[in-house]
Design a protein around this nucleic acid. Sequence first.
DNA 1: ATGAAAGCGCTAACAA
DNA 2: TTGTTAGCGCTTTCAT
Lengths: 345, 345
Amino acid sequence: MPRTAASPQRGQPTIVSIAERAGVSIASVSRVLNGLGARRDTVERVERAAAELGYVPNAVARSLKDGRTRQLTFAMPDIGNPVYVAMVRAIQSVAKAAGYRLLLHSTDAVVDDELAVLRSLGDRTSDGLIICPIRITDAHIEALRAAAGPVVVIGSLPDEVPVDSVRADSVAGASLAVHHLYETGRRRIAFVNGPADTVPGRNRHEGYRAALADCGLTYDPSLVVHTDFGIESGAEAAEALLHRSPDAVFCANDQLALGAARALHARALRIPEDVAVAGMDDSALAQAGWPPLTSVDLGSTERGRRAAELLLERLGAPDSPTPHTTTAPPRLVVRASTGRAAPDA
Amino acid sequence: MPRTAASPQRGQPTIVSIAERAGVSIASVSRVLNGLGARRDTVERVERAAAELGYVPNAVARSLKDGRTRQLTFAMPDIGNPVYVAMVRAIQSVAKAAGYRLLLHSTDAVVDDELAVLRSLGDRTSDGLIICPIRITDAHIEALRAAAGPVVVIGSLPDEVPVDSVRADSVAGASLAVHHLYETGRRRIAFVNGPADTVPGRNRHEGYRAALADCGLTYDPSLVVHTDFGIESGAEAAEALLHRSPDAVFCANDQLALGAARALHARALRIPEDVAVAGMDDSALAQAGWPPLTSVDLGSTERGRRAAELLLERLGAPDSPTPHTTTAPPRLVVRASTGRAAPDA
DNA sequence: ATGAAAGCGCTAACAA
DNA sequence: TTGTTAGCGCTTTCAT
């Protein structure tokens, strides 16, 4: 059954319905709607018809025509982590200002999911992608090279991969925290880290070790726990570390630190008098607990903003050959959880 | 300059390039790619060509053809609030399982933004919308009636508006908390509420008043503060309430409660011995602080999940006339922040 | 200033 | 089984 032009699929008005109602051609409708020249009365009739029909231009048709969707995709491991929330906010704000919508993907850090997202750039659903993988495999690198559209990576890529990226300096960040703990008198600094096989996990561990060496402290493996990022894990890890009697617990993110703080409170240990606690990310969580948490700001918001800006630049000049890499400098934010130890501690 | 079929816009392969390479028609390509019948060797040649070219179907073209984008939109006030994060997670998970992507909008609770989102349903960018307004104006209702596609509202709509919705029962929720505080011996129960002109604000206030009456306590306006939702606001409000010497502070969400707890800690007041604290939403924050927070679970995850399911149902049966309304029952989660008062308190 | 028509990439009805 | 063609809604030449 052939469908007549006057009865479109969903009853939604199209330029055809407007043209019929206004008694002009669809080309004129298009011109008027796009503010190009037209005779006064043509303009009026078209605008009236459009208003009366409640016309809204079909964005899909427009996209097909001009090859862009005005959508950006952000893929991150877990929207439950405040760090990624901060990134989403920053990206969303830049995107919105530039007239782009934001598509969200939670990958749960599953490699296949991340690769699928990368490949899906080819389906033209969005004009560009910001992806934040916590592991970077050879498959990632291959997929990045083969990407069918602009990509910005939030994370640490090998230098030879020709892709824009924004990285945190978590080596320096971890080091900052350890130095601070040392300077406020701590000597047995435990470390609750995330998974050892992730980029952040490796880097934070490296920073921790290096800073200990700087301070003339010996690295003691029994003061280090690897777990996953999460409040419960932090509590369990801290619990397990307590019999090593640390005087400080440095955690690879704020969620772990909050968990650690809870474990200490539960044992009636005072923070910071008995044990200091420091986290990383300086997320909203750092100020949620008691005492407020010393934390290393790794610039999540900054990184999100910068990634979005890079992506927009790339969309403006697709063939600019040189990939940009920015590194957000870490910043130590000292709060009450790391004051001086009690004299007798 | 006319563009030949063989050199498409972005160098991206299309069914035309595949057809040429495989020496068949585009229809055959389409059939093979969609798993319809074809001769063995046709299938092979098409699949080989597609693989060699790294073909990915253009989702925009497909959408234009069949009138659906397989995208859902979620519009909420603020992705920084854990409640909405919980909803995003739940919605994302349902959407993903059904093969839909998720488009995110942060409206900052700005009415014009929310109306724009509602209107933008007409541009066919997404197949349906979940919107979570905290104020519901006549303009909202009008826009909802005029919506060009399926909408589910998370929030309390007047009954006569023919739109699917999922609501929280924050009246009952607030009442639950107040009763619990009363039963654990509190008699001067202060209330830190959100903005008075929002639906949640009004309802929580109503629940608070009603519960006080139930318990035979008099409503004392000087024990009530209206502010906005946020940690800092909670701290300031609690600070301001302290000279009224409450024995409990009930807060309209967890962020406020965390702020209140901080203010109490800063004054060296013990929780719960001196003052009990309770929040609402039972978000991730409730277990982030110390002591862990008693909170009323208003089913954010549940509401998000349900809203997504309703939307998918509606997409399956667009003309089903009866709007569905679900109410998530509130659930009190008791934690350490509301133990019994100290005997002498 | 306006209209006819091509074409973006795809699917599906129809013909062969 | 396969190819030709129309058409989704829009923008944009190219004529008029």
